[in-house]
Design a protein around this nucleic acid. Structure first.
Length: 755
DNA sequence: CAGTGAGCGAGCTTCCGCTTGACTT
C-alpha cells in the first residue's frame, strides 16, 4: 500500500511525474477545478458577506469520489496544483472537499517537470497560501457578479440569451471600435517616385525621398529630370543584427500558427493538446517564456552538434506580459533531439514550428550589413535612396524567422553594386505611382488574442474559448471579403519621354478577419453607455492590482468586492428601472421618393431598415453581411425592392423574395429556390414559372418507398445517399443493399442494429 | 425553413478559469 498521494491538475502531467517518483507514490489528477459557484442561481449570498455557494459539478463527481477514497488510504496527500492563483485555489478546494487534516497534507509547487524540480518540491513543502486563495475567490466572484447581472439585463433590454462579461464584452468592443475607425478613415493618396538606374552594370531600384500631393506636381518634377544626369552621392554601410524571438507562449503560438500555418486559434490549441498528451511538447497553456535549465542545456548541445558552436548563444528571456503568472515553462519540445514526430499532418506542422522557435531562441544573432545608396543630380534638391541588406552571418535565421501582422512588407534589395561616390548612375526610367494610405487593420483571431494579452484580458486557457463565444453569440463574425478595384494614376519617364497611364489596383480584400455584427454594435453601445467602468480597457488591469493587494494580505477580499458591488449594483438597478429598452436607432437619410426618414433598428428578428409614416410602411431585414452601422442608403433601397410581385399563376400571386436560404419564388404556399444564375431583382414571370414547373416535376419523380405493414417507415434518397426514415430518425442503408429492392425485414434489421 | 417589427407571459438563457473526454453528423 502506497503512503503518498500526489494530486496535480493535468492527467498527462500526472503520468510524467509518476516516472520520477518511487513506488510509494500514487499520482492522480484533479482535472482542473473540482468545485465552482452554483450554476442554478447567482451562487453568492450578497447580503451575507458575499458567501460563495460552492458545489461539485456533475462531471467532477467521479474524480472527486476517487480522490476522496485514495486520500483516506494514504498517510500524506501532496497538493501539487500549479503555482498560481487558480492553482492555489484548486489545492484549497481539494483540502476542503477531501476533508484533509492539517497534518495529513502538504502543499508543493514546481514550474518545470524535471526530476530535480520535483524532488526539490517534495523536500520543501509549505502550507496553503490563504491570501492567494482569497484573491482567486475575489476574481471568481467578481466575474460571476458582472456576468450574471449584466447578461439578464441584456435579456430584458435587448434580446434573450445574450451574454456579457468582463472579458468577452471588452473583446467585442475592440472589434466594434476598430470597425468604426475603419469606417471613419478617409484614404488619402500621394505620388511616390521610383528611379531605375544602372550603376556599374547593375540595375538598382530606388525611391525618391520626397512624395507629391498631386499628379501635376509629380509630372512637373519628372519633367525637370529630362535633361539631367545622375551620380552616386553617398554610400553608407552600417552593421546591424537581428535577434531571435523568445520561445512560444500560448498567445504567440496562436499568432504564429495563424500567420504561418493558417490555423484558427481553436485548431492550434486542439493540435497542441494532442502533442502535449503524447508527450511531445511541454504544457501548451502558459504565459511564460522561461525555459528550464535542462532544456537550455539540451538545446545547446543540439545546436552545437547540428550547426557548430558559433551558432549557439544561451539566452534566458524575461516575461513581460501584464499579469503573467508563470506557473509553467514556455512551450517547447520535450525531447529536443526528436526533430520529427509521428502524428497527424497538422500536428507535425505545429510541432515543427514549436521545435524551430524553441531551438532558434537559443541561437546566435544574425549579423546584417545594411547599405544605403544615395543617387542624385546637382540640380534638384532631392535624392533617390536604395536600402540593401546582406546577411553576413545567418545565426538563428538558419532555422526560423517570426512573421509579422503587417501586411505591407517593404521591399529591400539584397545586393547592391560596388560603387564609389561620383560613379555614374545611368537613368533607365523614372516612374511615379499614386499610393493610397491604409486604414487600420481588422483583427484576425490571433491578433485579437495579442491585443487581449496586451491589455491583460483573459488567460492562456481562455483565449480560444472566448473567441469562440463571441462568434457563437453572434457579436462577431469571421469573414473573408473580395478586394475592390480602384484606378490609380501613373507616370513614366523613359528616354526623355513622359507618358501617363491609369492602372487598376486591388484594395480592401480581407481573409478571415473579424467583423462586428449589428448585435455586437448594439450590445457594445448599450454596455459602454451604462457601464463605462467595466467596458474600459483598463478595468481588468485595475482590479488585478486589487487582487494583488489581497494576495499580499493588505486588503480583505470581501471589502474589495463590497466596494465594487455597491457602485455596480446601483447602476444595474437603475438600468433595470429605465422604462425604455435599448433604443439603438440610426437615421440613414431620407427616402428619395417620399422624403420620409430611413431608420435602422434592431428588433426581435434582428437588424432591419424601416420607413414609417407613409401609406404603406416599408420594412426589410438586413442581409447577413450587412451591418446596421455601415450599410449605405443604396443598399437599403435595394433591400426595399424585394419582395416583388411578378403576376399570377394558378389563381395565386407569384412573389419573388429573399429568404434566410437565398432568393426564392413563392406561389400557392410553396417555396421554390432560385438558381444561382437568376437575379431576384430582374427575374421575369416566365422564368419564375419555369422554376415552379421544374421543381414540381422533380418532386413527382422523387424516390420514395413505403410498406403497408409499417406506414411510418419510409425509404428515401437524400443528399448523402439512400436512407430509412422512421420515427423522426434517419438510418443509412449500406451500399450492399439496393434501396429499390430492400425488404421490410432488412429495414428493421438496420434500425435494430443502430439501437 | 423563407411572412414578421405591439405586448403579454412561462420558462429558459448567462460569467471566467482550470482541466479533458464523450458524444453525433
Amino acid at each position: 500500500m502506497e503512503n503518498n498521494l500526489v494530486i496535480v491538475e493535468s492527467p498527462a502531467k500526472a503520468k510524467t511525474i509518476k516516472r520520477f517518483l518511487g513506488d510509494d507514490f500514487i499520482v492522480k489528477s484533479s482535472y482542473g477545478h473540482i468545485r465552482d459557484l452554483s450554476k442554478k442561481n447567482l451562487g453568492i449570498d450578497v447580503d451575507n458577506g458575499f458567501t460563495p455557494e460552492y458545489e461539485i459539478p456533475a462531471d467532477k463527481k467521479k474524480v472527486v469520489s476517487e480522490l476522496k477514497k485514495l486520500a483516506s488510504q494514504v498517510k500524506t496527500v501532496w497538493l501539487a496544483s500549479d503555482e498560481d492563483r487558480e492553482g492555489e485555489a484548486i489545492s484549497w478546494h481539494l483540502s476542503e472537499v477531501l476533508k484533509l487534516k492539517e497534518s495529513s497534507y502538504k502543499r508543493i509547487v514546481f514550474h518545470e517537470i524535471t526530476k530535480d524540480a520535483i524532488q526539490n518540491a517534495i523536500d520543501n513543502p509549505r502550507s496553503i497560501d490563504l491570501n492567494l486563495v482569497n484573491a482567486q475567490q475575489a476574481r471568481r466572484i467578481l466575474d460571476r457578479l458582472v456576468g450574471f447581472k449584466l447578461s439578464p439585463l441584456l435579456w430584458k433590454k435587448i434580446k434573450p440569451s445574450l451574454s456579457a462579461g468582463r472579458v468577452q464584452s471588452v473583446s467585442v468592443k475592440l472589434i466594434v471600435e476598430r470597425e468604426r475607425e475603419i469606417n471613419a478613415f478617409k484614404s488619402k493618396s500621394e505620388y511616390k517616385v521610383f528611379g531605375f538606374f544602372i550603376i556599374n552594370g547593375i540595375s538598382v531600384k530606388s525611391e525618391l525621398n520626397k512624395k507629391f500631393k498631386t499628379k501635376q506636381e509629380a509630372a512637373v518634377f519628372l519633367e525637370s529630370l529630362k535633361e539631367e544626369s545622375f551620380h552616386v552621392a553617398d554610400l553608407v554601410k552600417k552593421p546591424g543584427k537581428k535577434s531571435p524571438a523568445p520561445p512560444f507562449t500560448t498567445s504567440t503560438l496562436q499568432q504564429e500558427a495563424g500567420r504561418k500555418l493558417g490555423m484558427s486559434v481553436a485548431q492550434t490549441m486542439k493540435f497542441a493538446q494532442g502533442l502535449y498528451e503524447n508527450g511531445h511538447i511541454t504544457y501548451m497553456r502558459t504565459d511564460s517564456v522561461n525555459l528550464s535549465s535542462l532544456a537550455i542545456n539540451t538545446i545547446k548541445s543540439e545546436i552545437v552538434k547540428s550547426f557548430g558552436v558559433e551558432y549557439s548563444k544561451v539566452r534566458q528571456f524575461q516575461t513581460k506580459t501584464k499579469g503573467a503568472q508563470e506557473a509553467h515553462e514556455a512551450i517547447r519540445p520535450t525531447f529536443v533531439n526528436a526533430e520529427n514526430i509521428e502524428m497527424g499532418k497538422q500536428e507535425q506542422r505545429l510541432y515543427d514550428l514549436i521545435w524551430k522557435r524553441a531551438v532558434a531562441s537559443q541561437m546566435s544573432d544574425a549579423k546584417i550589413e545594411k547599405t544605403i545608396l544615395t543617387v542624385n543630380n546637382d540640380k534638384n534638391n532631392v535624392s533617390f535612396i536604395t536600402t540593401g541588406e546582406i546577411v553576413s552571418f545567418d545565426g538563428f535565421l538558419k532555422l526560423y524567422m517570426e512573421s509579422s501582422d503587417d501586411e505591407t512588407t517593404e521591399e529591400k534589395q539584397s545586393s547592391l553594386p560596388n560603387a564609389k561616390i561620383n560613379d555614374e548612375a545611368i537613368v533607365e526610367r523614372v516612374e511615379s505611382f499614386e499610393k493610397y494610405d491604409q486604414p487600420p487593420y481588422r483583427y484576425t483571431e490571433a491578433s485579437l488574442v495579442k491585443k487581449m494579452e496586451e491589455l491583460g484580458i483573459g488567460r492562456p486557457s481562455t483565449y480560444a474559448p472566448t473567441i469562440s463565444t463571441i462568434q457563437q453569440r453572434d457579436y462577431v463574425v469571421k469573414e473573408s471579403r473580395p478586394p475592390k478595384i480602384r484606378v490609380i494614376g501613373s507616370l513614366t519617364l523613359t528616354k526623355g519621354n513622359l507618358t501617363e497611364t491609369k492602372l487598376d489596383e486591388k484594395f480592401g480584400g480581407e481573409a478571415n478577419k473579424l467583423f462586428p455584427t449589428s448585435m455586437g454594435v448594439v450590445v457594445t453601445d448599450y454596455l459602454a453607455g451604462h457601464f463605462e467602468e467595466i467596458l474600459d480597457y483598463n478595468f481588468t488591469a485595475q482590479i488585478e492590482e486589487k487582487f494583488d493587494h489581497i494576495a499580499d494580505g493588505d486588503v480583505t477580499w470581501t471589502d474589495m468586492i463590497a466596494k465594487f458591488y455597491k457602485g455596480f449594483n446601483v447602476k444595474v438597478e437603475a438600468s433595470l428601472k429605465e422604462k425604455e429598452n435599448s433604443k439603438w436607432e440610426r437615421e440613414l437619410g431620407k427616402h428619395p421618393q417620399t422624403g420620409l426618414p430611413i431608420i435602422l433598428k434592431i428588433g426581435k428578428y434582428g437588424p432591419y431598415a424601416s420607413v414609417e409614416g407613409g401609406e404603406k410602411p416599408l420594412y426589410a431585414s438586413l442581409r447577413k453581411n450587412q451591418n446596421i452601422e455601415s450599410i449605405t442608403i443604396e443598399e437599403v433601397l435595394d433591400l426595399f425592392r424585394l419582395p416583388r410581385t411578378l403576376g399570377e399563376y394558378e389563381e395565386d400571386q407569384v412573389i419573388v423574395a429573399l429568404g434566410k436560404y437565398g432568393p426564392y419564388v413563392k406561389n400557392n404556399g410553396a417555396f421554390y429556390a432560385l438558381q444561382k444564375t437568376d437575379d431576384p431583382y430582374t427575374v421575369s414571370l416566365e422564368r419564375a414559372l419555369e422554376i415552379i414547373e421544374e421543381k414540381k416535376k422533380n418532386v413527382k419523380e422523387a424516390f420514395s418507398r413505403s410498406f403497408d405493414e409499417m406506414p411510418g417507415l419510409k425509404v428515401l434518397k437524400g443528399r448523402y445517399g439512400p436512407y430509412i426514415s422512421y420515427e423522426k430518425k434517419n438510418y443509412r442503408i449500406p451500399k450492399s443493399l439496393d434501396p429499390e429492392l430492400i425488404t421490410l425485414d432488412e429495414c428493421k434489421n438496420i434500425i435494430e442494429k443502430k439501437k
